[in-house]
Amino acid sequence: MSDRRNAVMRTVAVAGPVGVAAGAALLHGVLANTSAALVLVLVVVAVGVAGDRTAGVLAALSAAAAFDFFLTEPYHRFAILDRVDVETALLLLAIGVAVTEIAQWGRRQQARAQRREGYLTGVATAARLAADGTPDHDLVATVERMITDVLDLDGCRFDPTHARRTDRPVLGRDGTVVWHGRVVDVERDGLPTMDTIELPAGRRGTNGRFLLVASSGVRRPDLESRLVAVTLAEQVDAPVRAAEPDR
Rank of each mutant, 00 (worst) to 15 (best):
I102P: 00
I102H: 05
I102N: 01
I102K: 00
A103P: 11
W105R: 01
R107C: 02
Q110H: 14
R112T: 15
Q114K: 13
R115F: 00
R115G: 00
R116F: 03
R116S: 05
E117N: 03
G118E: 10
G118K: 05
G118N: 11
L120E: 13
L120F: 12
L120P: 01
V123S: 09
A124L: 11
T125D: 14
T125N: 14
A126M: 11
A127W: 10
R128I: 06
R128C: 06
L129M: 15
D132V: 00
D132Q: 08
G133T: 08
T134S: 14
T134M: 06
D136G: 15
H137C: 01
L139Y: 12
L139R: 12
L139V: 14
V140S: 12
V140F: 06
T142S: 12
T142H: 13
R145Y: 05
I147N: 10
T148P: 00
T148S: 13
D149S: 11
V150W: 05
V150G: 07
D154K: 01
G155D: 12
G155Q: 04
C156I: 07
R157K: 01
F158A: 04
F158S: 04
D159W: 00
D159L: 01
D159V: 03
P160Y: 03
T161L: 00
T161Q: 01
H162S: 15
A163P: 00
R164V: 12
R164Y: 03
R164D: 09
R164K: 05
R164H: 10
R165W: 08
R165D: 15
T166M: 03
T166E: 08
T166Q: 07
D167Y: 11
R168Q: 08
R168W: 04
P169K: 01
V170F: 14
V170A: 13
L171E: 08
G172S: 13
D174K: 04
T176W: 02
V177L: 05
V178K: 02
W179L: 03
H180E: 09
H180I: 02
G181N: 05
G181H: 02
G181T: 03
R182H: 09
V183Q: 09
V184L: 03
E187C: 02
E187P: 01
D189K: 04
D189Y: 09
G190L: 06
G190N: 08
G190H: 06
L191R: 03
L191V: 04
P192M: 04
T193L: 10
M194I: 07
D195A: 14
D195C: 00
D195K: 06
I197C: 06
I197M: 10
E198T: 14
L199I: 01
P200K: 01
R203T: 15
R204W: 12
G205M: 03
T206S: 14
T206R: 11
N207D: 12
G208P: 00
R209F: 00
F210V: 04
L212N: 09
L212Q: 04
V213R: 15
V213W: 12
V213M: 13
V213P: 05
A214S: 15
S215F: 15
S215D: 15
S216H: 14
P221K: 02
P221L: 04
D222K: 05
D222W: 11
